[in-house]
């Protein structure tokens, strides 16, 4: 992606990262009405559209924060594709029939499509990690939380009442355990690992 030019709409991504209310408001004013229409035309209502939009913005925020998202296409196309994908997934889950899929002018090869797929994949991976993290034992969860919040392993060990060497080793094994759970999940293969 590094060889592609960054689109001027990157300002929206930066605005989200700064938690800039004006930018968020601008996204709602400019790009959300189209999503609401789409959801309403495809067996949804305004409340459902609100959830889809909110989820999508959080996904974009997370990707920007964690992976330095760089927009190579207009925000409008990227955002709409993501919302649309999310809505279609919701419909699939709820087993609702008759989805009018209005395939847009966008063809599969364009950068909005590529970027939307990348973001969607990122979001599904995050969801999988999250789900598996919840399955870890309490001791592992507490240790991992403490490790990333406190940062100094000495303090972590002291706060949990264990030795430094034990905390150090246990942390690696707990993260290892998390990767094992992820690998064993049926979703893992679907996510192109």
């Amino acid at each position: 992606m590094s060889d592609k030019k960054i689109h001027e709409d990157q300002k929206y991504i930066e605005g989200l990262l700064e938690n800039n209310s004006f930018i968020i408001q601008a996204i709602y004013n400019k790009f959300v009405p189209k999503v609401i229409n789409y959801v309403k035309q495809n067996s949804g209502d305004s409340d459902q559209a609100q959830d889809i939009v909110q989820d999508t913005i959080v996904t974009i925020y997370n990707q920007a924060k964690n992976k330095g998202l760089q927009l190579t296409c207009p925000f409008d196309a990227y955002f709409f594709l993501l919302c649309k994908r999310k809505w279609l997934n919701t419909l699939k889950k709820n087993n609702k029939k008759e989805v009018t899929i209005n395939e847009e002018v966008l063809s599969k090869g364009d950068s909005a499509h590529e970027l939307a797929i990348e973001t969607a994949l990122f979001s599904e991976k995050q969801a999988l990690f999250n789900e598996m993290f919840q399955k870890l034992g309490t001791a592992c969860k507490d240790l991992i939380k403490a490790t990333f919040k406190i940062k100094s392993m000495e303090e972590v060990a002291a706060s949990l009442g264990v030795t430094y060497a034990y905390a150090r080793k246990k942390k690696s094994l707990c993260i290892g355990q998390l990767t094992k759970l992820v690998q064993e999940s049926p979703k893992f293969k679907q996510l192109n690992y």
Binding site: L16, N19, S21, I24, Q25, Y28, Q50, V53, Q54, I57, V58, Y61, N62, K65, N66, K125, Q126, F129, N130, F133, I144, K145, F148, K149, I175, G176, L178, T179, V182, Q183, Y193
Partner: peptide, 30 residues
């Protein structure tokens, strides 16, 4: 995969407060 898990955890817990402030603001604007 280990590296990815490590990065995921790092972001999840290090940015927790920031992310939740963002979500609250987003919710009220929404």
């Amino acid at each position: 995969l280990y590296k990815e898990a490590n990065l995921f955890l790092k972001n999840k817990f290090e940015n927790e407060a920031e992310t939740s402030a963002f979500k609250n603001n987003l919710k009220s604007i929404s």
